[in-house]
Nucleic acid binder design. Sequence first.
DNA 1: CGTGAAAAAATAGCGTT
DNA 2: AACGCTATTTTTTCACG
Lengths: 145, 145
Amino acid sequence: MDAIDEAIIRCVVRDARATYAEIGKAAGLSPSAAKRRLDRLVATGAIRGFSAVVDPQAMAWHTEAFVEIYCTGNPTPAALRKALDDIPEVIDACTVSGAADAMLYMLAKDIPHLEQAIQRVRSTTLVERTESAIVLSRLLTRPRL
Amino acid sequence: MDAIDEAIIRCVVRDARATYAEIGKAAGLSPSAAKRRLDRLVATGAIRGFSAVVDPQAMAWHTEAFVEIYCTGNPTPAALRKALDDIPEVIDACTVSGAADAMLYMLAKDIPHLEQAIQRVRSTTLVERTESAIVLSRLLTRPRL
DNA sequence: CGTGAAAAAATAGCGTT
DNA sequence: AACGCTATTTTTTCACG
């Protein structure tokens, strides 16, 4: 993981469909060297994958919420992960510091759908209660770097 | 936005570097038709862009936090957006329902860096106080669909 | 890592429904 | 208006220095 790898990552975070020629130019490398580096970054797991950023408005699912989870007892991260994995509306889940045990980012079609999904989260025996903040408007979204 | 567009989006969310032949197969289309559709989805804004999903552990920045913002007065979303746009550690920002006015997702090198970034958020005249939850462990991250 | 040739994919033009 | 097909250009990929 040197400066060249970081340049490649910056380039491909900005545009995952960049050609190897473009990636190479951004990193000061030939196209073939750029490909070898990128392949290695994927193989080692530094890059998890490539994804399209979709406008939630354009899709059917346009109701977003941040949900704080308060657990009963002290479930392990693995147990929590296993419980949440089956709920497709849960997009992002992290254990956090502070009063809550975990923070979820959820995505649903509409409010009734979101409510139903939160019910499923609650029905997990591990979860005692939840506290939700529904997204009203999205101010900015940046690629993660 | 029909079923074919949705199939294309599903395909490209799973792998943004898929070839038009692959995208076409997923949608039951020829490569050229797949390209035309994808180009249109980008042009209309349904697809905002293509990005690599980077393992935060592998990068220098591996301290994440959810930050609730409580504002003075009633700033417009536009004003809030403008204030946060200059702070690169702010990855995601939304106005939300509930007690807080907005929720941020922030990413920094380490705790001191995060603290400094939150200070910058606080120094914004619009912000009265903040409440942070630092991410301890990431349970799951799914592409947004 | 770079170079250069072969294979694959992307792109643009054209005819069809 | 949208598709498939074909020809051309560009990109990817691989062997070698």
